[in-house]
Simulated assay, not measured.
Amino acid sequence: MIEVNQLSLVTRVPILNDFSYQFKTGNICLISAVNGSGKTTFFRALTNLIKHKHGTIRFDGQPFKKEKQAVFFYETPDWLDGNLSGLDYLKFVQRQWRSPRNLNEEINFWKMADYIRLPIKKYSLGMKQHLVIAMYFCSNATYLIMDEISNGLDEESRKRLYDRIKDAAVNEQKCVIISSHYKSDVAVIATRILHLENQKIIAES
């Protein structure tokens, strides 16, 4: 479980004020927010990419630095090094997260066999997004934090993604925190919907 207690975030402007919530395993939590309201900043705070002065964040009772291998967050395909291959990244994730996942199964599931050994600078946006998604599942992390993970995907790929997320939450007891421009699609599989607006995150009843 991720326990957020009285978290406040300020960047150039206030983002979040006194937010407390428990993100439990086995759940898919959709974070709904308009662009620029701070959801990415919230995800960065969860994963210690930015510091917060007020409040606490605990993963199974521990700070992030002690539970890094239980968490996977890859904010954007822009982070990818174009000179490396997709396979380089999958092998790195498997090694760093000490994951038992079969890489070939993930590669085939996401239909990446034709290009996985090519340098990423030759990838289209959709190909990069498939790689990032595969990295999440190759990590086998308990907590999957996905920021606009369905960007650049066609309808068929989005359906495969949502089905896989649901399976991971239900059958593997993963905790998935996700934001998406395709809110209506994700809402179908979400067990919790939270709205970020005016420095507050409020659960939808």
Rank of each mutant, 00 (worst) to 15 (best):
K174M: 10
L125I: 11
K111Y: 12
I120C: 10
I120L: 04
F137M: 07
N102T: 12
Y136P: 05
P77N: 07
I177H: 02
Y74I: 09
F109A: 13
I2E: 06
V34H: 14
E67A: 15
D185F: 09
C175I: 06
F109G: 07
H52G: 05
L131H: 01
K183P: 00
L49G: 00
L49R: 14
Q199G: 07
K91L: 13
R164N: 06
P119V: 04
R158C: 13
M127V: 01
W79M: 13
A113Y: 09
Y162W: 11
A169K: 01
M146P: 04
T40H: 08
F23R: 05
R12N: 13
H195V: 02
A134D: 05
R95A: 15
T41L: 04
H54F: 12
L7F: 04
I28T: 09
F64C: 10
R158P: 03
Y123R: 02
T56C: 09
E67L: 09
V4N: 07
K200R: 15
Q173N: 14
I145K: 03
K111F: 13
C138N: 13
D18V: 04
S157D: 12
V93E: 10
T47G: 11
F43W: 03
W110P: 11
E204M: 10
I178F: 01
D78G: 09
Y21T: 00
M135Y: 08
V176I: 15
S180A: 03
Y143E: 08
Y115F: 15
